[in-house]
Design a protein around this nucleic acid. Structure first.
Length: 204
DNA sequence: GGGTTGATGTTC
DNA sequence: AACATCAACCCG
C-alpha cells in the first residue's frame, strides 16, 4: 500500500481524473474508493471556477499540485476537488462519489443514512460523510504536509472499467465528456449527466 | 421510475 | 442572479 505523491498530479487533468478512479480516499478513520470524478480545466473551460472566479485563479497560482480545493455550494454543501498542475493541461478535479470502505458507522451517523450506496453517492454527500469542510481548503493531499490520517492510496486490486459522460449540473461547456465513472458501480451520483438550464431573465 | 421544488448562503 | 446539490414530494 502506498500513498499517491505529488507527481501523480503533475500530469494532464483529464489523465489524472481518469486515473483517480479506483484510488482510495482516506480521511481520518473513514475512507472510500473513488468511483466518479469530473475534470475542470484552467484553460478553455467556461464551466470551471477559474473561468469566472478571481479567487480560483489565485488558488491555482499559489498552490502546488495535489492541494485540496474545497468550496461551499448552494448554501449547504462542501465540495472537494484536487488541484492538478504542471502537465499539459492544468485544472481542478471534483471528487463526485465513493464506494465506502472504512469508518462506515461514522459516515452513517454523519449522513443520517444506513444504506451504503446512499453514504457517498454525490459530491455534497461524500464531503459530509467524511467530515470535509472549508477548514481543509488549500491543504496538501499528496506528499508531505498532509493532514493526519488523510491521503490517497494507490489501487492494488484489478483496475475498474472506466467510462466517460458529460458533466453534471453545469450550464456552460455542457458537452465536454469530462466526467469519469466506474462502470456499473452502485455508488455513483446520477446515472447520466444532467445539464442545468439557466433561469429566464425577468423571473423572480 | 422520473420530474419538480424548496432549502440555504457565497460569489461576482 | 447564478450556483460543480440534495431530499422530499408528487405523479403514475
Amino acid at each position: 500500500m502506498s500513498y499517491l505523491t505529488r507527481d501523480f498530479f503533475e500530469r494532464d487533468v483529464l489523465t489524472v481524473a481518469r486515473d483517480l478512479i479506483g484510488v482510495e480516499l482516506v480521511w481520518k478513520g473513514c475512507a472510500g474508493i473513488i468511483v466518479e470524478t469530473e475534470a475542470y480545466s484552467v484553460e478553455g473551460d467556461l464551466a470551471a471556477h477559474t473561468a469566472t472566479r478571481p479567487s480560483a485563479r489565485e488558488f491555482v497560482k499559489s498552490h502546488p499540485p495535489g492541494a485540496a480545493y474545497v468550496y461551499f455550494n448552494y448554501g449547504m454543501y462542501w465540495l472537494f476537488n484536487l488541484h492538478v498542475k504542471g502537465g499539459s493541461q492544468d485544472g481542478l478535479i471534483l471528487i463526485r462519489a465513493l464506494e465506502p470502505t472504512r469508518g462506515i458507522q461514522q459516515m452513517q451517523q454523519r449522513r443520517h443514512r444506513e444504506k451504503l450506496h446512499e453514504l457517498c453517492s454525490g459530491p455534497g454527500k461524500l464531503a459530509l460523510a467524511l467530515g470535509i469542510d472549508g477548514t481543509h481548503h488549500g491543504l496538501p493531499m499528496a506528499g508531505k504536509g498532509r493532514p493526519a490520517g488523510c491521503g490517497l492510496i494507490q489501487p492494488t486490486s484489478a483496475p475498474y472499467e472506466v467510462v466517460t459522460d458529460i458533466r453534471v449540473g453545469i450550464s456552460q461547456a455542457i458537452d465536454y465528456p469530462w466526467r469519469f465513472l466506474s462502470r456499473h458501480s452502485p455508488h455513483l451520483s446520477v446515472k447520466h449527466g444532467k445539464v442545468k438550464l439557466p433561469a429566464k431573465a425577468g423571473t423572480r
